[in-house]
Design a protein around this nucleic acid. Structure first.
Lengths: 200, 200, 200, 200
DNA sequence: TATGAATGAGACTTCATTCAT
DNA sequence: GATGAATGAAGTCTCATTCAT
């Protein structure tokens, strides 16, 4: 193998270890020195693999987005049964990844707010969109919901649950909200899309 | 006698002007020097009215929460009619205040991520809870929904819409989501709470 | 009485109250605001009576020096008996005023070190000399010692005891050192100034 | 590999150069920027080697105390003869180091007065005690004086001479005071400790 | 006179980044 | 490649002093 493979591999390893640290302290509060120390390398090494703190962060977000895509595909292979069950499956999966999901959003926002440079802001926005898109894709394909407003409705609900669980974790439960969504969807479909099965 | 100033009044004025700046730059990126400059005072004056940057920020959040409460009460006086109409009213109101609402959340998160000290974190969490609680109270009383899970469902949806409108404003519309929620709620109630009218 | 008397009287009162505060915190650490607050006046008032912090401090030192002179004269009226007794009397008196004496020296040094301006430094030096001179006068006249080197010897000892009691109060005792000095002086006089009585 | 630097060695060099500056301006008046500038490094470098201004200062005092100890031992190797000669030797040595000695005391006092925090005060006190102890040890062993009060007497005298030479250098002379002390000690010993030679 | 709000220079300290080794 | 010492701009906060009331 050429050397470049090891280089990229090592870079990914550094990024993955860096995620928890960013999530714990936020973009602005985590210093490059701390990062280097906790990663067991020198700051010089960090700057050998990444152009800047910002570059490192953006590459981290990209990596996470790709991971999300890959995982989403795996989940999609489990074909679903009834709508409620599929919803429960999606919610379960998100609940399991709740920590990561929340961290991604938090750290994205903290980064987003740190930027003044419009070019960077755009790039950051793009990355966050990619992440969202990953989940959207997952839900869309897996839940088999075609109506974009309905899809958006579910996205919003998931995003809101995630945020609220961050601030008041005892008030919101994935399971209950999932059950409620299931019942509401069924009622909604039966009322407004009587034509059959789950197609919407 | 000293220069005549209503200390508390002036403090509130400073806070309100500071809100937009915090929202635009985030907690960590807005420096006290910038803040002073944009507010047209000296840094010394800022520190005359607030013990620290953190104190200033926390007092700002408190002030906003109080404003929210006051406004919420005003809105509640408009008695509602059908459930969909009441939902639409609430969503309309939030949509109008969307800018403020989003900013509050963003800036809270950016502050939240800046803190390591657990005592401060607790205080910050408390403030954010207060804000959320204000909205919750509003929805609860105005929509007349008693079921806590259902109430929570709506909260989550609103929160999620808010966040998503921040990142991809063209994908989500308050009006459409509001209509969808109305229809789903009606279908849900008719299916599971047949006993009558809108009571849930 | 003309108004100026009250003015000066009030100034002296402020100064005397200020002494303890300066002694406790040092010249550099005591802020004008703290000083004003503890004195129960506004900073504006402080600046009405004194041109600057430095001026206030220098006026305080002058006032203390004058007090020292006055007290020294009072003590001198008690005529002494044997040399050891007169030494003990002087040491006793200084011991009683130890707190004040130490504070004067400390605060003078802390002020002295704060100054870069040579004019101020000179003035400060002058003031401290005045204080020292007060004690010197006292010892000279009261102990009846004419030999300048011997007088200087005693001055040095007193100054040294004062400083050492500041840093390690348990190692040095005024009484023991006074007794030792008495015995040494007697032995010294008997050996080198045999001519008679206590005259030296 | 990084720039090759003997961390501890370089730290000592910085400290030693810093001493004169602290002595000249006092603890409070010497700013880290000035210090850095005069030392020919950046403020960042200062903070690379020391945790804070206070840490830098305390480490400086420790370093000086250690130097004192080392030098004291060297002086002790010169065996003494008659008491007056040994006293003269000690005073000569101190006179030569007068500048340093005075600066140490001055700068310690200026630091001492800057502190309100009792923990720091304790630490500072400890360091100053160490310095004093160094000199005490020196005198004790070299002069061969066992009586603690007498030893303390000499300590006080030396400290007093040092301080007085700071404020009125023309009034006090190390030589004269040393001679006087020698004569007084001899007279005292002959009068009260007749048993023989110099043993006290 | 007396007040205390206002000022702004400057203090200590941090941190992304560079570069000699 | 890797290191970590070095940089210096910029952050938060303080404080002697002024001045409108």
């Amino acid at each position: 193998m050429p050397k470049i493979v090891d280089h990229d591999q090592y870079r990914k390893e550094l990024l993955l270890k860096a995620f928890d640290l960013f999530a714990k302290r936020g973009y602005g509060s985590l210093t490059m020195r701390q990062l280097a120390q906790e990663l067991g390398v020198s700051t010089g090494t960090l700057y050998h693999y990444f152009q800047s703190k910002e570059d490192l962060f953006l590459k981290l977000m990209e990596e996470l987005a790709q991971q999300d895509f890959r995982e989403a595909e795996l989940v999609l292979t489990n074909s679903g049964n009834r709508l409620e069950e599929r919803i429960a499956a999606v919610f379960d999966w998100i609940e399991q990844r709740e920590g990561t999901f929340v961290k991604q959003i938090l750290v994205s926002i903290s980064f987003y707010q740190e930027q003044h440079n419009s070019k960077e802001l755009l790039e950051a926005s793009q990355i966050i969109n990619d992440i969202e898109e990953g989940y959207r894709q997952l839900c869309h394909q897996y839940l088999g919901i075609a109506d974009p407003d309905l899809m958006n409705f579910i996205d919003n609900l998931i995003e809101g649950i995630t945020i609220n669980r961050l601030f008041c974790p005892e008030q919101t439960s994935w399971r209950k909200q999932s059950q409620l969504l299931g019942k509401m969807l069924r009622a909604y479909i039966q009322t407004y899309h009587r034509e059959g099965s789950d197609g919407i």
